[in-house]
Amino acid sequence: MSEISLEELQKKFQNKIDKDVKIEPRDWMPDDYRKTLIRQISQHAHSEVVGMLPEGNWITRAPNLRRKAVLLAKVQDEAGHGLYLYSACETLGADREQTIDDLHSGKAKYSSIFNYPAISWADMGAIGWLVDGAAIMNQVPLCRCSYGPYARAMVRVCKEESFHQRQGFEIIMVLAKGTPAQKEMAQDALNRFWWPSLMMFGPNDAESKHTKQSMDWKIKRHTNDELRQMFVDVTVPQAESIGLTVPDKDLKWNEKENRYDYGKIDWEEFWQVVKGNGPCNEDRIRVRKKAKDDGLWVREAAMAFSQKRNNKAKVA
């Protein structure tokens, strides 16, 4: 077979992407595409897994049996989603163990929203409604991303997530229609989660260094600001419909542009939280690391057992 030049390979690769042909694990791909995908998918996987913690915090205190079962099933789904994504990541040659170690060492990032505390039951509503709502905005277009295993994982995730946002909104809605104490609890949760939810879409487009290349590769299908705008436009009427107030005095409908104008995001806060100075950064990583460390003897035992039994089978 004749040598194909790198340039030619890259051209063929981009051609495929432009024609919406999916890239599969063993196809040739540029190193940077692989690296960028590993970073993006593993960040996404970590977000699912770390995202289990703020809600997991309330499973044991859920107010009734139905809510307890729903929340448990929801947090379990997040573990599942983390797993689908780690699987997708492994197809790129990124070993799960190593990926998780990078999370624990602080080298890998996850969605900064999970560094905010979940301090009331209403936060379960706000997280489902706003945080999952924002996540879905991001994830739905990724079902069409160029990398096959990632796209397939996202299809699965999106299908399962559809109940997550609904259960969150239901929680908030019941509170908003409940006693004054409950309504106050709901408004307080919205106040605390609104801005961090907007930050979930990442820096403004002008500041976002990876956007252009990722869009060309079709591993990002909309810019951060586009997604953020979509989120604001669908969420504000939802809040109004249940009588809650979005905590943004600059928020107003822009008739001309057919969208909401919203206030300035506190990017200083965003970067502080990303850099590890949020209210819960240390706790989240400590807990995940503890789970892994405490499980070490279990994983070793299971492996030792499997090796023993294989040897026994060979002898017999």
Partner: peptide, 25 residues
């Protein structure tokens, strides 16, 4: 249910949660 998010490996976390869900049901 206390263990959800704290299992020794993600797969087993999901398994224990399933058992918990069955029991609460």
């Amino acid at each position: 249910s206390e263990l959800c998010g704290h299992g020794p490996i993600l797969e087993e976390d999901i398994a224990l949660t399933n058992i918990s869900l069955d029991l609460i049901g």
